[in-house]
Simulated assay, not measured.
Amino acid sequence: MTAPRTPTWRVMRQDDNGNRYLVARELPKAEAERLAAELEARGHKQLYWTEPEQA
Rank of each mutant, 00 (worst) to 15 (best):
M1T: 15
M1G: 14
M1H: 10
M1S: 13
M1P: 12
T2G: 06
T2V: 11
A3N: 07
A3T: 12
A3G: 03
A3K: 07
A3H: 08
P4H: 02
P4R: 04
P4S: 07
R5E: 12
R5M: 05
R5K: 12
R5L: 08
P7C: 02
T8Q: 04
T8L: 01
W9G: 00
W9E: 00
W9P: 01
R10T: 11
R10M: 14
V11F: 00
V11T: 01
V11K: 00
V11W: 00
R13I: 04
R13P: 05
R13T: 03
Q14F: 08
Q14P: 01
D15S: 03
D15W: 02
D15Q: 07
D16W: 09
D16S: 14
D16F: 10
N17E: 11
N17M: 01
N17V: 03
G18Y: 10
G18W: 09
G18L: 09
N19Y: 03
N19R: 04
N19D: 09
R20P: 03
R20G: 05
R20L: 03
Y21T: 12
Y21D: 13
L22Q: 05
L22W: 08
L22I: 05
L22F: 06
L22N: 09
L22Y: 06
V23H: 01
A24T: 01
A24P: 05
R25N: 07
R25C: 03
L27H: 05
L27R: 05
L27W: 03
L27V: 02
P28L: 02
P28F: 00
P28V: 02
P28E: 03
A30S: 13
A30T: 11
A30W: 04
E31N: 13
A32V: 01
A32T: 01
A32I: 01
A32C: 04
R34S: 12
R34N: 12
R34P: 01
L35D: 03
L35R: 14
L35S: 07
L35N: 06
L35A: 08
A36F: 05
A36H: 05
A36R: 03
A36S: 12
A36M: 09
A36L: 08
A36E: 04
A37K: 15
A37C: 08
A37M: 12
A37N: 15
E38F: 04
E38T: 09
L39K: 14
L39Y: 10
L39N: 10
E40Y: 06
E40V: 02
E40P: 00
A41E: 14
A41R: 13
R42G: 11
R42W: 06
R42N: 06
G43T: 06
G43Y: 10
G43M: 03
G43N: 04
H44Y: 13
H44M: 08
H44E: 13
H44V: 08
K45R: 11
K45D: 13
K45S: 12
Q46W: 04
Q46A: 11
Q46E: 09
Q46S: 13
Q46L: 00
Q46R: 04
L47R: 15
L47F: 11
L47N: 13
Y48C: 06
Y48L: 04
Y48A: 06
Y48Q: 03
Y48K: 07
W49Q: 08
W49F: 15
W49P: 11
T50S: 13
T50Y: 08
T50D: 07
E51Q: 07
P52Q: 08
P52K: 04
P52I: 08
P52W: 02
P52V: 09
E53T: 12
Q54R: 14
A55E: 14
A55W: 10
A55C: 04
A55S: 12
